[in-house]
Amino acid sequence: MPHQCTSCGRTFPDGSKEMLSGCPDCGGNKFQFKPANATENAGPAAEADEASDSAAGADGTPASDSGPSDGTRPTADGEVASASDEGAAARGPNNAADATPDDRADPTPDDAVAGAASTTGSDGTEQIADRSDEDMAQASARSEVVSPDELDRASRDVDSAETSEPTDEESKPGIDALRDELNDQFESIRIVSPGQYELNLMELYDRQEYIISLQEDGRYVIEMPDAWGIDDE
């Protein structure tokens, strides 16, 4: 769940090796990392998922077609967006209005649900406008190739992403849990807190691709191995 392709929104479970040679769907090489404790919005996500499921179900198109076939549970934003985008594209703009789930029994629609609903009624770019800042960055990445300029920025710009130092009481359980989780993973660089890193040298050495830019918000850029090198593995 924690890794998400910023180009197409496909998500990968922590420890997945699928993404190591780039996103299998779109070939993107820019991913966003979402630690386990950042997925608390899975609730709204599940609702949104339901919404798009029922919307897609209305005309008999199974929404799960667009999900990953490896049985991993799709995360909120990317998969929902791609599922409903595809659905909307297939149905055309007229049917898209019908697909809005008016009969849903949820009296307090939150942001994620609103986002998903507006997706079904409009194209992908409008849906982006409803998102938070982070997701807007993701959304723009979804439609463009990362520019050299952004790569450059990624290696320098830390102020905007800087978070306040968490207090011990707050950070202890989160970091410990995260670290336990990561101990079983292939993780090669751990961000302990902004400016504090732990590196797994063997993992860094063993990976074919390498990280060329880190950002404090969990985003990172990897350089893709050459296509002809993949066969050698």
Binding site: I189, L199, Y205, Y210, I212, S213
Partner: peptide, 9 residues
């Protein structure tokens, strides 16, 4: 940190 990754690469 990025530098260490580069060195290992």
């Amino acid at each position: 940190t990025e530098g260490v990754a580069e060195a290992m690469h």
